[in-house]
Design a protein around this nucleic acid. Structure first.
Lengths: 231, 231
DNA sequence: TAAAAATTGTGATAAATGTCACATTTATAT
DNA sequence: ATATAAATGTGACATTTATCACAATTTTTA
């Protein structure tokens, strides 16, 4: 974890969020002055559950996981975040401390924006506020959707869905390097390492995917999709 | 479902939401002019998944369930809403159609607020916007939390948690009338009618609760809580 | 590079939960 | 009030998934 030494200003940021894209030059300048840009290596903690919430976090580069310590001290991955994306809004507006953790899965860069600054932008610029409301609404709907899916689908089906999620939504490629260990993958789908191993092995035996450690190729996306929907 | 004929104006509404409580007299008047207040009987549909979203819905009276049609056409109850509470914000800011349904569990009253009006209040009044952001943030965190719980806990534990949720959060009473059928309760905990029947029967046999159809008394809340936490 | 640690695979087994079929009770509508 | 429909309870059984124990492999560290 290191500070960003190169020239980095919100005004010319290539990874503006939708809310930030409605800000004018002056507001962007204000935002820039109240933000710090920090780099993280894979595996490093970006946000720690229980830490005080004084900053909004916005990830500009890299992949991260949002996870929560569940009942009886087991971590559960709530979602895989592909930047650019806000990763620390809900907790900041809810509590004095973060309700979840975020860790980098790949080399990542994150802007930490002072809460007071963010709040001022919200109050002063209604369009900014609306865009943020849209971001949160969208997150909430997705959360509904993923929770229903996780609950109703068999593990086979949900793991198939997740593989397609990685290939379609995260990497836009049928070949990718799974950025999770088998244990983490289990935390994502709500199961155990062993069961995940077995189901992936099953998929491979049946020629749905090719697999070598963390390198995965989806060979039959239509079939995987069918399993995801019916299985 | 019927229109509200009695005198009903936002200015003197006894069920103001936090966001609405920051509005001034003029804004409240504007809100009032752009809202309709409607009554529902238990069982009636308030919001239908797939319907066009032109209104924000705010429930002032009664209990409702938010649910979603999952993969393979099985409904899943996402949460039980105790009024006063917004029940239709996220979909409105996300999509052209509602992504979930809401149905009244008891006699209910709901204000439908024109989307354009709501948007104008958001743009014009930053404090209103902040309060709405807080509402959504809070919903999102709760959703994280409940999804992790549902995934990690055994059914025993999650059903115990839900019983305590009804007694502690919804009714503030150890005796209450469960506002759900056994099938609906199953949809809430992500299981089946039969299994719910059996686990509730178990709780009764072990003297944790008393039960007669839908009437339930929590007899040993500490023990239920222990089951809820350890499984 | 060797040693230690972390990750992964695999079989045997147990536990939890779903499924199906049917009886019984309760609620609803005519 | 009776007929009909909806909701509930229950047993037998099948299936899914977790758990445990241990070996094999890969990664990290000294």
């Amino acid at each position: 974890m290191e500070n960003y030494t190169e020239d980095c200003r919100c005004e010319k940021c290539a990874f503006k969020s939708l809310p930030v894209s409605v800000l004018n030059e002056k507001e962007l300048n204000f935002l820039s002055k109240n933000s710090i840009h920090i780099k993280f290596n894979a595996g490093e903690n970006i946000i720690r559950q229980g830490a005080f919430t004084t900053n909004i976090a916005y990830q500009t580069v890299g992949l991260s996981k949002i996870y929560m310590r569940g009942p009886l001290n087991k971590d559960e991955i709530i979602k895989i975040v592909k930047s650019p994306s806000f990763i620390g809004v809900p907790s900041v507006f809810t509590d004095k401390v973060f309700q979840y953790s975020v860790a980098a899965l790949t080399k990542s860069e994150v802007c930490f924006i002072d809460y007071k600054c963010f709040e001022k932008l919200l109050v002063d610029n209604g369009k900014f506020a609306i865009e943020l409301v849209k971001v949160l609404s969208n997150d909430l709907i997705n959360q509904f959707y993923s929770c229903v899916n996780k609950t109703q689908k068999s593990l086979n089906a949900y793991i198939a869905e997740m593989l397609l999620y990685f290939s379609d939504k995260i990497f836009n490629n049928y070949e990718f390097l799974l950025p999770l260990t088998r244990s983490e993958f289990a935390q994502l789908v709500g199961s155990t390492r062993e069961t995940v191993t077995r189901i992936l092995g099953d998929f491979m035996e049946n020629g749905l995917i090719k697999m070598d450690g963390k390198s995965i190729s989806v060979l039959k996306p239509e079939l995987l999709d069918k399993i995801s929907r019916t299985g």
